[in-house]
């Protein structure tokens, strides 16, 4: 699965639209402001590629909507913005950490393990921690209580990110080369 050229084109179209929408409003602002707008519009463009079918895209749109609502709304005017933004994410599962830890301790005490079991438990713990890390990296990851779903979304997210990076890099290169001349 590599980013296809059709995906790139689509992304470029969306991104250009977003930048044109918010172009006039920030004419003579600082670099950081401009950077923020560029990044926001790129993110929304990337997320809107999936048309709200994936968890991460919805979460990303929601996140950007809190920062710049009007931009997101204007950018998503083509596809129904309301449904995209207001689509509810799957519920976050909550459990009291202290209670869970205590019960685990009790369980550990009850069955003393051999060395190999100990190692396996350690590996399991490590994997769990890494999974948590992945959850925090992928947007909307904390809502995915299912490991299979998490990995699927990560796959999709990585492909989209690669598309984004490819297009942005080519554009940056082009503009820089143009300015040097």
């Amino acid at each position: 699965m590599q980013p296809t050229s059709s995906m790139k084109e689509e992304f470029l179209k969306k991104w250009q639209m977003g930048i044109q929408i918010c172009g006039p409003s920030i004419d003579n602002t600082s670099v950081s402001e401009r950077k923020k707008v560029i990044k926001l519009s790129a993110d929304v463009a990337m997320a809107s590629l999936r048309k709200g079918t994936t968890c991460w895209s919805r979460a990303l749109i929601q996140k950007t909507a809190t920062e710049d609502n009007s931009l997101v709304r204007q950018m998503l005017s083509g596809i129904k913005a309301e449904t995209l933004i207001n689509k509810t994410l799957p519920k976050k599962t909550l459990c009291h950490r202290k209670i869970v830890r205590r019960s685990k301790k009790i369980l550990m005490r009850r069955n003393a393990r051999s060395a190999s079991e100990e190692a396996a438990a350690k590996a399991k713990k490590l994997v769990k921690r890494k999974t948590q890390g992945l959850r925090s990296v992928v947007p909307g990851g904390e809502f995915m209580n299912n490991d299979v779903l998490l990995i699927q979304e990560t796959l999709d997210y990585i492909v989209s990110l690669q598309t984004q990076v490819n297009v942005m890099r080519s554009i940056v290169d082009a503009t820089e080369a143009g300015i040097e001349r």
């Binding site: 930048i19 401009r34 942005m168 940056v172």
Partner: peptide, 13 residues
């Protein structure tokens, strides 16, 4: 990349 683009383009367009 967005930083670079912001730095390169005086107007983001």
């Amino acid at each position: 990349l967005s930083m670079r683009l912001a730095a390169v383009n005086p107007r983001i367009d």
